[in-house]
């Protein structure tokens, strides 16, 4: 198999599902394909894509980041607590500080994981609790004030293209470029593939790990800032659902929890599937609670299908030759 073959195998399942769902949706409801519906979709899906990107880079190194939700929450309440300054500088403040806060939190995670052999699961489990406490400390209840300028982000357009869409495409493109065309990006895959071998090839695991967890914090911070603009407020619990959802999106998007395999191109597809489900249920007038069951089922289906030795396990196939 060649590189292209491998990449195709990783991303095909996701987009096949997206296509299937899209067609099904359009068939069942005419209003699905309207411009409004789709713009709305972009807007909603962006934070999940950002969270998915955060989780993907971490998962590629064989780790995991359970603090994504709390970091998003912290960024959200931070954005809503910034002092209102009546100048254009306000927007700059608002777009810089929450992501930087996220970066700082991610860096702390990275430090703990890189310097000592603490398992990422536990470190981020603990830090998610700590960061949640921080978020609650900043804002006990949803509220705060988000400057009006900032809310332009969610509903504004540049050259007729909605800003959320631009943001999403920029983030994904940047992440993809990072992973495929930079040295640290390739180091991420090598580290996830086999840490010992990566070290032998001169890769510094502590630097790479510090980098990915910081990056995860940065993306989470962006997501939090975006969410506060969308909701006109900060919410210390806004990030809660994003932890598990980001893992699901990363995994459906083709990345393996073992590390070393996958990428960000599938994250868009994965996030889309999630929101498409909600969208469809809405348009079809079905109880929104069914989304959980649908998501669970799709998660299982997507993974079962991409399992390489599926037939073998079911006892139906021959074992591979040596």
């Amino acid at each position: 198999m060649s590189e292209r073959g491998r990449d195709l195998r990783i991303y095909l399942p996701v987009y096949a599902i997206v296509l299937a769902v899209y067609i099904f949706a359009g068939w069942r409801s005419a209003s699905f394909f309207t411009w409004n519906n789709n713009v709305n979709l972009f807007g909603r899906v962006t934070p999940l894509i950002l969270a998915g990107l955060a989780q993907t880079v971490v998962i590629l190194t064989g780790g995991i980041d359970l603090s994504v939700g709390s970091m998003i929450s912290v960024a959200s309440v931070t954005a809503a607590s910034l002092p209102y300054v009546d100048t254009p500088a306000n927007l700059v403040l608002w777009t810089l500080i929450p992501p930087l806060a996220g970066l700082a939190m991610g860096a702390v995670n990275g430090l703990l994981i890189a310097k000592w052999p603490f398992p990422p699961f536990i470190v981020t489990l603990a830090s998610s609790s700590v960061y949640l406490g921080l978020a609650l400390y900043i804002l006990r209840e949803p509220g705060g004030e988000v400057s009006l300028d900032a809310t332009l982000v969610s509903s504004g357009k540049i050259q007729g293209i909605p800003i959320p869409l631009l943001l999403m495409l920029a983030a994904v493109a940047a992440a993809h470029l990072l992973l495929s065309r930079t040295r640290i990006g390739r180091s991420i895959y090598a580290l996830g593939g086999n840490e010992t071998l990566a070290i032998q090839s001169g890769i510094r695991p502590d630097r790479v790990k510090f980098f990915v967890y910081s990056l995860s914090g940065l993306f989470s911070g962006l997501a939090g800032a975006y969410l506060s603009a969308w909701m006109f407020a900060g919410d210390p619990l806004v990030g809660e659902p994003y932890v598990m959802n980001s893992i699901a999106v990363a995994v459906i998007g083709g990345s393996s929890l073992m590390g070393g395999r996958g990428g960000v191109l599938g994250v868009v597809g994965g996030a889309y599937i999630f929101y498409l489900i909600n969208n469809i249920l809405n348009l079809l007038g079905i109880n929104a609670f069914y989304q959980y069951i649908a998501k669970g089922a799709i998660l299982i289906a997507a993974l079962a299908v991409s399992a390489p030795d599926l037939l073998q396990r079911l006892g139906l196939g021959r074992r591979g030759s040596e």
Binding site: I64, M244, I247, A248, V251, L257, M258, K295, G296, A297, L299, I300, L303, A304, A307, D309, L310, R313
Partner: peptide, 11 residues
């Protein structure tokens, strides 16, 4: 199905 426990139990 060989699905990783984290994801399977999540689902």
């Amino acid at each position: 199905l060989g699905i990783s426990p984290m994801v399977m139990t999540l689902a």
